[in-house]
């Protein structure tokens, strides 16, 4: 392949979306849906709904026992109904007027840039409210650098989690990652051994009551492998994949067929719906699971996530 570093990304200044294209990739960011609506690499769609910041974790037995879910219940509503309040676009690092009609009439069908950043601002449904931004910077290789910033606010209850959740159209065949063995949390990862691990399917840990599970701390990269799409013209069932990379610090992730809310609602694993999506969440902050007891003892203080402080994380999605 040619020297990709000189490649530019093509910008499609749509009326409802901002399209970013290049060789082997096409991304669409929706002003209406408040996020990235389409992530296509090599003709395969990776997004079912726009990724959104996530704040909830399916209540663990310990969370139930110590009343954490009750204290932090506001974050469940925010997790489900978060609204996008603002979109900003920058081209080559320079902010531009939001390119919606008629502002976008000044552009053409051959607009190119070295990189484009689109930033979505979300307002939480908490009292008091605060904001979170998710910024996507795309270059000509299709590489996406994602930065997510939470703005702390006094008076908010502790966060169950803080991440960015991608819902993919079909259930993955599996994933592999460079990180720690097994399921790990900040207060339960000493036994995790560093290595490259391959996971078949999207296993949900079979706790008697479905709950937060499948976390992988200290990850350098994770690659999701699928072999099916929802495209009616796509009869190919070869594997294709998407890779999330460390950008700066390592990250935590889980890769499950369900959202926290789906897990939350089941009393038994068999009540969960048939797996049909992939829910890949990259976490910037993970709360410990605790373990002193299951009827009141809190998670140790250093493994809490304060909502009164700022939290930021970033990672990259590999280009083509």
């Amino acid at each position: 392949m040619a020297n990709t570093s000189t490649k530019q990304v093509q910008i499609i200044y749509g009326d409802a979306t901002l399209g970013l294209r290049g060789e082997g990739f096409g991304y669409i960011f929706s002003y209406e849906r408040g996020g990235m609506e389409s992530l296509v690499q090599h003709g395969k769609e990776w997004l079912y709904r726009t990724p959104k910041p996530t704040f909830w974790r399916a209540t663990t037995d310990n969370d139930r026992g110590n009343g954490f879910s009750v204290k932090s219940a506001q974050w469940l509503g925010t997790d489900m109904f978060l609204k996008c309040t603002k979109v900003d676009v920058a081209v080559n690092g320079n902010a531009i007027e939001l390119p919606i009609s008629p502002e976008n009439n000044k552009y053409s069908n051959h607009e190119f840039a070295d990189n484009v950043t689109i930033t979505f601002t979300y307002e939480t449904l908490t009292v008091p409210a605060t904001t979170v931004t998710a910024a996507y910077t795309v270059n000509g290789t299709g590489k996406i650098k994602v930065s997510v910033d939470y703005h702390g606010k006094a008076g908010l209850p502790e966060l169950p989690a803080f991440g960015l959740r991608f819902i993919m159209p079909t259930a993955a065949k599996g994933f592999n990652y460079d990180g720690l063995s097994g399921e790990t949390y900040p207060d339960r990862m000493a036994g995790g051994e560093t290595g490259h691990y391959t996971v078949d399917g999207l296993p949900v840990t079979k706790y008697l009551v479905p709950q937060e599970c499948g976390m992988h701390m200290q990850t350098k990269q994770v690659t999701v492998i699928r072999n099916r799409t929802l495209d009616n013209t796509d009869h190919d069932n070869h594997d294709f994949n998407l890779t999330f990379l460390q950008a700066g610090q390592s990250f935590a992730f889980s890769c499950l067929p369900y959202t926290a809310e789906e897990l939350e609602n089941a009393t038994h694993i068999e009540e969960l719906p048939a797996p049909r999506r992939t829910v890949l969440t990259v976490f910037g902050a993970v709360r410990g699971v605790g373990g002193i007891d299951s009827w009141g003892a809190d998670v140790e203080q250093q493994y809490h996530i304060s909502a009164e402080e700022d939290h930021s994380f970033s990672f990259a999605i590999k280009g083509v």
Partner: peptide, 13 residues
């Protein structure tokens, strides 16, 4: 000790 109900066993250190 370390009540391992569901997703637990954090803080053993």
């Amino acid at each position: 000790f370390m009540h391992d109900m569901g997703n637990s066993l954090g803080g053993m250190s």
